[in-house]
Write a protein that binds this DNA or RNA. Structure first.
Lengths: 245, 245
DNA sequence: CGGACCATTGACCATAGTCAACCGCCGTGG
DNA sequence: CCACGGCGGTTGACTATGGTCAATGGTCCG
């Protein structure tokens, strides 16, 4: 089984039960690998891509471009994520997708995915579920950015990213590589760089976690969860209910 | 064709092309009507519903319950919306669904929906698309609440609701019934009731729009769009591309 | 009639935004 | 080789915006 197929299969198996036939169908998807430089745009607002993106390595982000030229980052994606699955069924991108640091993605043609979903509805349901988890993450971001003070807001986002990374075995020694600058955290959380910096300093002083040199280190997960008021339920990472019509 | 089926079909036809067989399948969905009082919870956080909700009349909202007991409203839904479609594939609700004013919903069993989606993938794709538009609305809410000042933030939300209502022919004489109190607007936009009130007063003074007695009246759509920096692209309300595998 | 809830307004204050200066690092080019 | 410039991060001082609190009035309903 090729690399990208294995990554996709692993990801979907994180929440969905797939039959051997489903796995075989995944194995048949053709794809093309693409290396990305830091900050490189993969898809722009308004595009209508004909391939889907699977993150193979690194971190990919999605963002809205604002009238004043600034960005609002919407989400970050790690290995196994499908950051633009919605393009399968929507005719233009309402946001852009870019690489945060160096990254590698696999591009899978829409037509192969769609054909597989028609023939194997359960496989489609698994990807559908993936897009629904995506939406749950957006909902949490609304709440995070709208109703938590700066410290908790940063902590919550760190908790989420770390938790998701652990679920995909992407952490090493309680640290996670996140090539995201303070300006970018600011443009994610709806704060200013100064506030981000002060929040980071405060977090460091709690000894719960530390972000430095593009690495997030977790020192005390329990305390970190408390500070961020983090409850991972919304990530729906256990096996979810399977449709049994 | 029964009422609820007609409403659902109309909604899906707003963005998807459906065959006569697809429409026939929709007509076969059994459902139960339920009347809701203002503020009545329909689904609670943590529930695992076995029926899907279709809004038939009134306004329905979704919200996160916060640690401090306050609410963060995530979205509002008008006639034709499926405010909990994600429950089809996720095993517990990460948020609650409630009626904002008096409302009426149709409850459709998951098992009928899922069986139809297996037999008629295109029908499933249409509902999938619906959930993807939902996600696009969440993304816009992130941006709205995180990076627009109070005045623009209110205006943007009003624009979105009015635009969606017009698309479903739910406005009368440029006004829209929205049984949502100032506290609830505040809990939606991440502001305080005082700020909401001042923003509303300011909006009134622009003569672009007015919200009073649960009614939103649009006086000057062009100016309103400008104030809210509103671009309806993210609502994906034209016919979207159809899968042709 | 009394109480609850919603809307409105004013005065005060705290928080985060703004602005500016500075540091360290790195890559480039003289 | 070093000088330079740019970028990312850090910090301090000031300020403006929006949050807090309190008081008032209106309306609906029991």
């Amino acid at each position: 089984m090729s690399d990208a197929s294995k990554i996709l299969a692993e990801k979907l198996r994180g929440h969905s039960l797939l039959s051997n036939d489903d796995l075989a169908a995944i194995r048949l998807f053709p794809y093309q690998l693409r290396e990305l430089s830091p900050n490189e745009d993969l898809i722009r607002q308004g595009d209508d891509p004909s391939v889907s993106v699977l993150v193979v390595r690194g971190v990919v982000g999605r963002y809205h471009l604002l009238e004043n030229g600034r960005r609002q980052y919407l989400s970050f994606h790690l290995m196994g994520d499908l950051p633009d699955a919605q393009a399968l069924f929507l005719d233009h991108m309402d946001h852009a997708v870019c690489a945060m640091g160096h990254a590698c993605v696999a591009l899978i043609p829409h037509k192969n995915l769609l054909r597989a979903f028609e023939q194997r509805p359960k496989l489609g349901f698994a990807v559908w579920r993936e897009t629904l988890i995506d939406a749950a993450i957006f909902r949490e971001a609304i709440t995070n950015n709208s109703s938590r003070p700066p410290l908790a807001r940063m902590a919550h986002l760190f908790c989420e990213l770390f938790y998701r990374a652990e679920a995909s075995s992407l952490t090493q020694e309680k640290t996670l590589e996140l090539p995201i600058s303070l300006v970018q955290w600011a443009d994610t959380l709806g704060m200013r760089i100064a506030t981000v910096n002060r929040a980071l300093a405060l977090l460091r002083s709690t000894r719960a976690m530390e972000f430095r040199n593009s690495r997030l280190s977790v020192r005390n997960w329990r305390r970190m969860k408390d500070i961020g008021q983090f409850d991972p339920g919304y990530l729906h990472l256990r096996k979810s209910k399977q449709p049994s019509p």
